[in-house]
């Protein structure tokens, strides 16, 4: 009765290609999710060109630039971490992943200072200064807080994934032959970078 017949195309096989494909499909959903916000941005920007321009002067270009460089660097370290593990050097891989997490923390700290500066100036929706702004500038700040906030949330989630992967590499569950989890976390991290690549010019560089 208990014969062990297994189909060659079993869903229980370790299938790195399947999980990679699943990850890419998930990234599509993330792209479209942020896409909805970019759509809203496009409409309101086209209706309030001058107000968006004026409001954007409240952001600090150099902080934005610094954060862009931080994220790009973290993208490089996570990509290198994959190469390191593929070459059979888990120690180096773990080191590069910690560098990525460090970059994530730096990004969040800079973001924290930017946001608290806005709060101090009363630019958060509902605060005094905000309420006196013309409508277009209100929309700009609404979008700014929503989009960078959601992006920040993704930075945190991506960072958590990378920490998990670090521990899985340490325990040997993610290794030279089975590294799809690392690759998927890397893909997710690149997506976070990708979104920021568009957020940066749309909010900071419309001078």
């Amino acid at each position: 009765m208990n014969h062990h017949f297994t189909l060659p195309n079993s869903g229980h096989n370790y299938d790195a290609k399947a999980s990679k494909m699943g990850m890419w499909l998930f990234l599509y959903t993330e792209l479209i999710l942020f896409g909805g916000l970019f759509l809203v941005y496009m409409v309101y920007r086209s209706l309030n060109q001058d107000a968006f321009l004026l409001a954007s002067f409240n952001l600090n270009v150099w902080m934005g630039t610094a954060n862009t460089i931080v994220l790009l660097t973290s993208s490089m370290t996570v990509a290198m971490a994959i190469s390191a593990l593929q070459k059979g050097d888990p120690k180096k891989s773990i080191f590069l992943l910690w560098m990525t997490i460090l970059a994530a923390l730096v990004f969040l700290v800079v973001k924290y200072f930017e946001w608290s500066a806005k709060f101090e100036h009363g630019l958060f929706p509902g605060m005094d200064h905000f309420n006196q702004l013309p409508n277009g500038e209100k929309l700009y700040f609404n979008l700014y807080f929503f989009m960078t906030g959601l992006h920040g949330l993704h930075v945190i989630v991506g960072g958590i994934f990378i920490v998990i992967v670090v521990f899985k590499i340490k325990s040997g569950k993610v290794n030279k032959d089975r590294y799809q989890l690392l690759e998927n976390s890397g893909l997710y991290w690149h997506l976070v970078d990708l979104i920021w690549i568009y957020l940066f010019p749309l909010f900071y560089l419309i001078h």
Partner: peptide, 11 residues
């Protein structure tokens, strides 16, 4: 954070 509120210019 009102994106659709007409009183903030939303549509």
């Amino acid at each position: 954070i009102g994106l659709f509120d007409p009183s903030m210019g939303g549509d």
